[in-house]
Design a protein around this nucleic acid. Sequence first.
DNA 1: CTGTATCCGTGTTGATACTG
DNA 2: CAGTATCAACACGGATACAG
Lengths: 228, 228
Amino acid sequence: MKSDNITKNVAHRRYGDACGAAHALELIGDRWALLVMREMMFGPRRFGDLRASLPGISANTLTQRLEGLITSGIARRERLPPPASTPVYALTEWGLESEPILGVLGRWAVRSPQHDPTLAFSAASLLLSLRTMIAPDRAGSLYAKIGFRMAGETYCASIVDGVFAAERAPVEDCDIVLEGDPPTIAAWIYGGVPLDDLETAGALRITGDRSLVAIFPELFPLPAKAQS
Amino acid sequence: MKSDNITKNVAHRRYGDACGAAHALELIGDRWALLVMREMMFGPRRFGDLRASLPGISANTLTQRLEGLITSGIARRERLPPPASTPVYALTEWGLESEPILGVLGRWAVRSPQHDPTLAFSAASLLLSLRTMIAPDRAGSLYAKIGFRMAGETYCASIVDGVFAAERAPVEDCDIVLEGDPPTIAAWIYGGVPLDDLETAGALRITGDRSLVAIFPELFPLPAKAQS
DNA sequence: CTGTATCCGTGTTGATACTG
DNA sequence: CAGTATCAACACGGATACAG
């Protein structure tokens, strides 16, 4: 039995408001929706990957969100080519263009006095936050390639003209390579935890150009908290 | 009796995620929250004003959202000076800085094939959408002041260096003054409905510089829809 | 006019278990 | 690993009543 729930996603809650922001909330305002999109920002992901990156989401909810995103034209279901014909979920082109939403939300919300940076942090979150938080005036004309090894995957990022970009790719030809889990890397870049402490604890390993390593965290200043 | 519901807003749903966007959703991801903020973007509003601008919200829900926004430091409850000592709700400075969130959401969502521009449209929505949609290259070096009379209130907007800004103010010294309800004005600017039709129907009245009137809608092009 | 207090029907969420 | 089934808790919207 698969289609007893005829009136589930069809009669989706609407606002009856022509405002674009209101329509955006109808599309991606459901709980978890935007975070599911976040996890697909760097390429297709499997059901289990998404579930692992979103601690607390239930399988039910993830299924419903993916269905909703697909019927809205934001995501797409693919199947990896045989022999590994696993189903994966990817953002459409339009879905990918929602990235500024994550940036603007994050830049605004980290100023909240209640923001707790010690919680779980996915690889996608870290890379998107670096893209959001880089200060172009501090980067100046720096050109650099930065590799990341996190949770069994590798990402290759670049800093060009003050813009930080990243993709899932091998870490070859990178000026520096960071190896550790996302919260640890964040503790170094954002939290000001000394690199020596993390390296001797075996939580973080950085190889490559030490002069770049020395200034790297300064490229990503956090905005001041709002009020008290 | 006022505090029987101890565990209502206190145990607010969290994501347990350090990502800034996730925290933003904890702050303003509740249904209606962002739309309530939208209505306060141009200054303090009364409970009844908010309710009237948000068709479909219940008094209960509006009360809860306002409480949440206040405890998060996003909004503030004030009282107009006597004799009209009516309570009003206003955004804090930090709350006001959430405006780019509305812009980015709207710019992305109007490209949805399912967006319906014929629904209700508040004055705040219209002015924010003009601010979002203005094309600086089309505005060029145009300098103009535009007045709006909508639903018994007046707004004064300016176009300077391709930036559209508006505030609740008298429409004095404006180059043109638009008088009509927000959906009608939107039909002219965005919908391409001829001004003559709207004026003869008595739905819209524009006074002032006719040459500015002629080119005005062209300053606000809508982005192309995503895919089909 | 500005809310608060209930009741109620319904949809959504999350936990657990389970199937292919 | 990729989901589905079931169930309990709760949030939401609508209606209504009512207090300051």
